[in-house]
Write a protein that binds this DNA or RNA. Structure first.
Length: 556
RNA sequence: UGCCCGAUAGUAUAAUGGUAGUACGACAGAUUUUGGUUCUGUUUGUCUAGGUUCGAAUCCUGGUCGGGCAACCA
């Protein structure tokens, strides 16, 4: 089954490193989320990349929580992140936390101070920002840049001991205030935050900045390939500078372009805003691009992994058509989902020549795609059926292969019927369709030689069960909500959720299992919602089936 | 008007100096007891101007366009 595929640029780098015997051919990656939000589909791309690389080249991947900012982080997020990675099908080697390294990072900082490569600065945030200059003008030193090693050591220790309030002092690297790379203009290494940390509690009141934590953590773990997104490219010079001047294991950073998707926002800040402002029902609202939402919506791990594979890895900014994600889940579900019948928008079909009290139990296959026989279930058939309102037209165009006066269709797994009549109410709405069935045409026993163009789904009226069905549409009305003028929330799609509270379903759907995908024939893929209960079933639509008729009808 | 990244069909992604290919989409057809699936075919592309070379998407130079960088965020 090995599929020929050309290498992406990171695989080329790894293969070249292995060829040259770098790190004895060892490959160790890491996935480093900050526990300040739920993982989204963009993270899924990164997870598949990092874990995938390690799997492909016989290496391992650490899960490391980048928890250096206690103000925004929490264990709720830690737990959700672990669950999502496991659900996607990946197993990390070690579960680690940057906060595990606070002690050693502190030592690294004192090492830099002793080498006269770091100093304590008492300037305010504004003063430091002003003194950094601009991209076109060099920065200038603050009055504290020339402090002695001894004084810096003492002040830094006192910072750690809690002698100073938040914001009163920082530790900065002493590099080059005129560097064209702004990240090298004496970047901040530590700031004072008297905040409770979800793991270290109140032990620390100084916390390292990202730049003084990430590369060092990589180095401590002897990560060979530290993969991050493009916005960190300018940080790489600092990443290397710190590792070199502290004198530790030379991990290397590589950058790829993050995933963007049409009709979606992908920043944790914006997603959090949607949650906090109740535009959605939480991080796992099925309209969200989070992994937990996709899971609740009925996406499968395999479909997300395939998606990550198909979008590719490169350094070019990209916007992926959300249709590709939908394609991937249809592709997977088509092979695995059991077929069932449900009528979302019902109209009654009466088979006038069928006995009133008769019920036939008809057999219908669970999955026509299955080669190993996934079996079948029995469906009750009777004189009165629910069919889809869309499947009847009073005046049908030529290419309409469903019911209209005089037209015949196959009832799925059952008989061919011919429409004879219909009833309307006072306002002109069709209320009932009448037809005759043709006895010799029962599925499996049909030697009538009759051929009809269309097959429609149905549910027997006296046997029908009911369920709530939730239909989801894109959350935003524009392709790139983040780029919209003004507030991105103004581009929210008010019709992103439609709730149908009484949908008729075939009896076997009472046995639907959580986490399993079902195809409601001719409609789409559905799965039980997390809030579903036996006495009140709730199905989420994962994605609709491709509908070429809808396209055709639109043209006309 | 500093530094860094990038630019190949509508969207992504390959071709690593030698036939511009693949996927999704779109369009057309075949098959079909799901207007689903499957299959076949068609359509659309190397940002630009020079240069090197027998030969350039690929190497060089200039330009254009897009993105990033001046958080006590990551």
């Amino acid at each position: 089954m090995a599929e020929e595929r050309s290498l992406n640029f990171l695989e080329e780098i790894v293969e070249e490193d292995i060829r040259r015997g770098k790190h004895d051919g060892r490959v160790l990656t890491r996935f480093p989320p900050e526990p300040n939000g739920y993982l989204h589909i963009g993270h899924a791309k990164s997870i598949c990349l990092n874990f995938g690389l390690a799997i492909k080249y016989g290496g391992k991947t650490n899960l490391r929580f980048d928890d250096t900012n206690p103000v925004t982080e929490s264990v709720e997020y830690v737990d959700s992140i672990k669950k999502d990675i496991q659900w996607l099908g990946f197993t990390w080697d070690k579960e680690l936390y940057t906060s595990d390294y606070f002690e050693i990072l502190y030592e690294y900082a004192t090492t830099l101070i002793k080498k006269e490569l770091a100093y304590v600065d008492d300037s305010t945030a504004e003063e430091i920002a002003a003194a950094k200059g601009t991209p076109t003008e060099p920065g200038r030193p603050t009055p504290f840049r020339s402090r002695s090693v001894a004084e810096n050591l003492r002040l830094f220790a006192e910072m750690k001991d809690g002698k100073y309030p938040d914001g009163s002092k920082v530790l900065r690297a002493k590099i080059d205030l005129a560097n064209p790379n702004m990240h090298l203009r004496d970047p901040l290494l530590y700031r004072i935050k008297h905040a409770h940390h979800h793991r270290t509690g109140d032990v620390w009141c100084i916390y390292p900045m990202y730049d003084f934590a990430h590369g060092q953590s990589d180095s401590i773990e002897k990560i060979t390939h530290s993969i991050c997104t493009l916005e960190f490219v300018p940080h790489r010079a600092l990443y290397d500078w710190l590792i070199e001047n502290i004198g530790i294991f030379p991990s290397k950073q590589y950058e790829f372009a993050r995933l963007n998707m049409t009709y979606t926002v992908m920043s944790k800040r914006r997603l959090l805003e949607l949650v906090n402002n109740k535009h959605v029902d939480g991080w796992d609202d099925p309209r969200m691009p989070t992994i937990s939402a996709l899971r609740r919506r009925g996406y499968t791990p395999a479909s997300i992994r395939n998606f990550a594979e198909r979008v590719g890895i490169a350094k070019r900014e990209n916007v992926i058509d959300v249709g590709l994600l939908e394609f991937c889940v249809r592709e997977d579900l088509n092979k695995t989902a059991w077929r069932r019948m449900a009528v979302l928008d019902p109209i009654k079909l009466v088979i006038t020549n069928y006995p009133e009290d008769k019920t036939e139990w008809l057999s219908s296959e669970n999955n026509p795609e299955a080669t190993d026989g996934e079996g079948s279930r029995e469906i009750p058939f009777s004189r009165e059926l629910w069919i889809e309102r869309d499947d009847f037209m009073e005046d049908a165009p030529k290419k309409f292969f469903r019911l209209a006066p005089g037209l015949s269709v196959r009832l799925k797994s059952s008989y061919i019927v011919t429409c004879t009549d219909f009833l309307k109410d006072d306002s002109g709405i069709v209320t009932e369709v009448h037809c005759n069935y043709i006895p010799g045409t029962k599925s499996g026993e049909d030697n009538s030689g009759m051929h009809v163009k269309g097959t429609i789904h149905w549910v027997s009226v006296p046997h029908a069960e009911t369920a709530e069905v939730r239909l989801y549409d894109r959350l935003f009305n524009v392709e790139n909500p983040a780029a919209a003028d003004g507030d991105f929330k103004d581009t929210l799609n008010p019709e992103s959720l439609t709730i149908l509270d009484k949908v008729y379903i075939e009896p076997d759907l009472k046995n639907a299992e959580p986490g399993k995908g079902y195809q409601f024939m001719r409609i789409g893929y559905f799965t039980l919602d997390t809030h579903s209960a036996p006495e009140k079933l709730i199905f989420n639509r994962t994605v609709g089936l491709r509908d070429t008729w809808a396209k055709e009808a639109k043209k006309a």
